[in-house]
């Protein structure tokens, strides 16, 4: 996952990325209102499993973390823990306008406004809330990034951990979290 260019990929990386993009296990964790679109996306009408998208019960088995809408400051703490427990490769999809700029909760005392200040986001899907077509197109976008080898935000998170930590600690005042040595 080091090269950023499709042409520069070695054959091994190419195969790796090809198989990764066809088996996206989504962490079954919903925040905000958007989680209600996930059942619709997964079930027979839209059938996301055609794309290899399916649920995973625990963070350690999941590849994709979907943040499905507004994120309360209390939930942010849990989301960070979930994200840090996930194994590489891992991707984050921000779902709905609440994750982008706060959406209709932009002035709420209790929800964060821009998700990518706290965890790195690979794909944003806009809409309030996005319909299953939009969700699937977001996943297709992610698959494209994976195939090109550009979806390496997890590495960026490790590199810029201090910046992310500072932002996170600004919100989570009472920081009692384990440190992971990925």
């Amino acid at each position: 996952m080091t090269s950023n260019n499709k042409d520069k990929q070695t054959i091994v990386e190419y195969i790796q990325n090809w198989s990764r993009k066809h088996s996206l296990f989504v962490m079954a964790y919903g925040t905000g209102c958007g989680a209600i679109e996930i059942p619709a996306t997964m079930t027979s009408r839209y059938d996301a499993e055609r794309f290899g998208i399916r649920g995973a019960a625990t963070p350690r088995q999941a590849d994709v973390l979907l943040i499905t809408g507004y994120l309360a400051t209390k939930t942010l703490k849990r989301v960070i823990r979930v994200y840090e427990q996930m194994q590489d490769p891992k991707y984050v999809i921000g779902f709905g306008s609440c994750t982008i700029n706060g959406g209709m909760y932009y002035d709420s005392y209790n929800t964060i406004n821009a998700l990518d200040r706290y965890i790195p986001v690979d794909v944003y899907i806009n809409g309030c809330m996005p319909r299953p077509e939009a969700v699937i197109s977001g996943f297709v976008q992610l698959q494209k990034q994976i195939a090109e080898g550009t979806a390496n935000n997890a590495a960026k998170y490790k590199e810029n951990l201090e910046w992310y930590r500072a932002n996170q600690k600004k919100i989570i005042k009472n920081w009692r979290m384990p440190d992971y040595n990925w």
Binding site: N101, G102, Y106, D107, Y109, N167, K173, N174
Partner: peptide
């Protein structure tokens, strides 16, 4: 870990609080 004024009081300015606490895109 809430240490401000109780948030449902009407004199609590939630917009100002959000502006100073959260990043405004």
């Amino acid at each position: 870990d809430w240490d401000e004024m109780p948030p449902m009081r009407r004199d609590f300015d939630t917009h100002a609080y959000a502006e100073k606490t959260f990043y405004q895109r």
